[in-house]
Design a protein around this nucleic acid. Structure first.
Lengths: 255, 255
DNA sequence: TGATGTGAAGTCTTTCACAGCG
DNA sequence: CGCTGTGAAAGACTTCACATCA
């Protein structure tokens, strides 16, 4: 998931497994929906279904947080929402900067889910002087010359990189030097950061390639030519989360 | 709601571990960069560094594909590019539809990495009649009434959902019914699909929350001192470190 | 000689299955 | 009685370390 390139070992966080941390937002979303419907309690079974995981996993996950349920009853929705929010650090405000206000950066700036939970777009930064001052999603774009000052003035510790691949590492370096310790990278490139800095990547291209891999398999197994199909051609489904790096590769095809 | 959730057994595809599949695109990207620089061969060490993984992992990953290296020398770049491309199914054309042409959908449509590698945006679909006919990224948006026909006419098996959360499941259902078997979901919601359909999700909000979790820990563990110094990125102790002080204020929850 | 390929060991994650509490 | 919480078992993934071979 993240952290310095210098392969960091198991980054267990305060005893909570990374896999569990990655699911907490999922649970939180499901719980929030229940909360809005004024549902008072949920069983692990119900909540698990809503979050798309199995109930044993969910209970195990929650066990890392503490014993927040009631046997024979389930979990108190409001209480759990609060506990998970706190665990995730969402009870505080996180100013975020987005660097690279192109199509994607602008879409991210406009994305509602951003501001929704503790995250606040503190500034938009772009290297193009022509963009400076132009408002995007109601926020004026600032020039990257002022990146360091912007980070410091706003106490930003989370940065989102939505620049072209080539600009990503330099931007990353500047963000880190200015004090950013968490980066969400949308550029199709691997970022190198010092220890203590977390990087998560989101990469359309990688996700598509993974889908293509499975898709190819399905096609191959479905109707195996004219022979008898090996069992049924099913499997997998479910959903997944995760990050994904990489990005650009023309299809070459030597012999 | 068929939650065919009954544990899908395999997490492996054709003997290739899922974790490995997820890294192949990374290797491919690194290899392509080398190829463009006309580098003839790479060692596992070099390639691993470029892809941001460790060399043992990379060698193990490649071992699932076959023995494509030469002892004492390394891997032939062009040959590996081809082998991985083939394994990922990138030697064929994958028509893709994007449903939901809002800020994000439009950004995705414009994203170059899309078309670059075997993936081709076959159609853009939106529910807003006002969008119909309007070209985005040079492709005219079509109305969702015609979704099924569009899927079938173009032989689409991969769909990208960039609609608001509420529309995602219905759109997903229609895509699947029309023949789509792989879905990349950008909507912040859990999709339920029948077995045999793959879903991968990309969720900004979840990624940020995961970062916030770690960020919060850094701040708390830093120097159990006063305020947290920004610039100096402290590192997290690797390994174990089970003990996370984090004596957060025992929270009382909101009623 | 030098780097791959790979059993084996180690670590993390998921799942099972049931004790135990409300 | 129902559902949580959790040891224990199973499984997946990573890392080690070295035999192996070009």
């Amino acid at each position: 998931m993240a952290t310095g390139r210098t392969h960091r070992p198991a980054t267990r966080s305060r005893g909570i497994p990374e896999a569990t941390v990655a699911r907490l937002p999922l649970y939180l979303r499901a719980l929030t929906a229940l909360s809005e419907r004024s549902v008072p309690t949920v069983s692990s079974e119900e909540l698990a279904a809503a979050a798309g995981v199995n109930s044993a996993k969910l209970r195990k996950d929650f066990s890392y947080l503490g014993s927040y349920g009631t046997r024979g009853v389930g979990y108190d929705v409001e209480y759990l929402v609060y506990q998970i929010s706190r665990e995730l650090g969402l009870t505080q405000d996180w100013p975020v900067v987005i660097v690279g206000i192109g199509n994607l950066g602008a879409a991210l700036a406009n994305y509602g889910g951003f501001a929704s939970r503790g995250f606040r777009v503190a500034a938009l930064i772009d290297a193009d002087p022509a963009m400076a001052g132009k408002p995007v999603a109601g926020i004026p774009v600032q020039h990257s010359d002022d990146l360091e000052k912007i980070i410091q003035d706003n106490g930003v510790s989370i940065g989102v990189i939505a620049t072209p691949a080539g600009a990503a590492q330099p931007v990353c370096d500047r963000l880190v030097a200015a004090g950013v310790t968490s980066i969400l990278n949308f550029a199709p490139t691997v970022l190198t950061v010092p220890d203590g800095v977390d990087v998560r990547k989101v990469d359309l291209s990688i996700e598509l390639q993974i889908l293509a891999f499975h898709e190819q398999r399905k096609a191959g197994e479905e109707h195996p030519d004219g022979a008898a199909p090996p069992a049924a051609a099913r499997e997998e489904s479910d959903e997944s989360a995760d990050q994904g790096p990489d990005g650009d590769v023309p299809a070459v095809m030597p012999a």
